[in-house]
C-alpha cells in the first residue's frame, strides 16, 4: 500500500481521543482509519514491508450502513490486536460496499517486535461518528475512541 497517502489527524477530546481521517476513495479512508487507530496504540515505528514474521488475518465485517461498517471493521481489528497481542501494519481491502468489507490484514506479534504500545484503546464509539465527501470529492471520517 502506498504510504504517501496516509492521511489523518488527531483531534483532542477531554476524556478520550478522536481522529479525523481522509481518503481519496472509501477504501483509502478505511485504510487510513485503521492506520490512524494503530498509530494511537503504538509509536510510529514501521517494520519493513517484507517481514516473514507478519501473520495475515482475514477480516470481514458487515453492518447496515457505511459508518457502522467502519466501527465494525475497526472493532474487529482491535479485538484481534487485544487477544492475539499483535499490531496491524499492513492492509489489503478486497471489496468494500456500504454494508460489507472483505479484507486481509497483516500483523506483527508485539513481543519481540520494535513496536512499543503507548496507549490502550478500549473501543470505537459512535459519538459524533460521520463519514462524508467534501466538495472536492475527498472522503472524510470523524471517529472518537474510548481510551
Amino acid at each position: 500500500m502506498d504510504k504517501d497517502n496516509i492521511d489523518y489527524k488527531i483531534i483532542d477530546h477531554t476524556a478520550d481521543i478522536g481522529l479525523e481521517v481522509y481518503g481519496k476513495s472509501k477504501e483509502e479512508l478505511f485504510l487510513n482509519a485503521a492506520r490512524g487507530m494503530f498509530f494511537l496504540i503504538t509509536d510510529t515505528q514501521l517494520i519493513p514491508a517484507r517481514n516473514k514474521n507478519r501473520k495475515y488475518y482475514t477480516v470481514n465485517s458487515n453492518a447496515s450502513n457505511i459508518e457502522d461498517l467502519l466501527v465494525a471493521w475497526l472493532s474487529e481489528l482491535l479485538f484481534i490486536h487485544a487477544t492475539e497481542f499483535v499490531i496491524f501494519d499492513d492492509y489489503e481491502i478486497h471489496s468494500l460496499t456500504e454494508q460489507m468489507i472483505k479484507s486481509r490484514a497483516g500483523a506483527i506479534k508485539i513481543k519481540g517486535s520494535p513496536y512499543q504500545i503507548v496507549r490502550e484503546i478500549k473501543a470505537i464509539t459512535y459519538h459524533n461518528l460521520r463519514i462524508f465527501q467534501d466538495r472536492t470529492g475527498r472522503w472524510q471520517a470523524n471517529i472518537v475512541f474510548d481510551i
Binding site: A63, S64, D68, V71, A72, S75, F79, A82, T83, K122, A123, I124, Y126, D146
Partner: peptide
C-alpha cells in the same frame, strides 16, 4: 477488555 467487548457487542445491537 471483558467489559469493553460487552459494551461494543451491545452497542452494535442497540443501533
Amino acid at each position: 477488555g471483558f467489559g469493553h467487548q460487552v459494551c461494543s457487542d451491545h452497542l452494535a445491537i442497540m443501533q
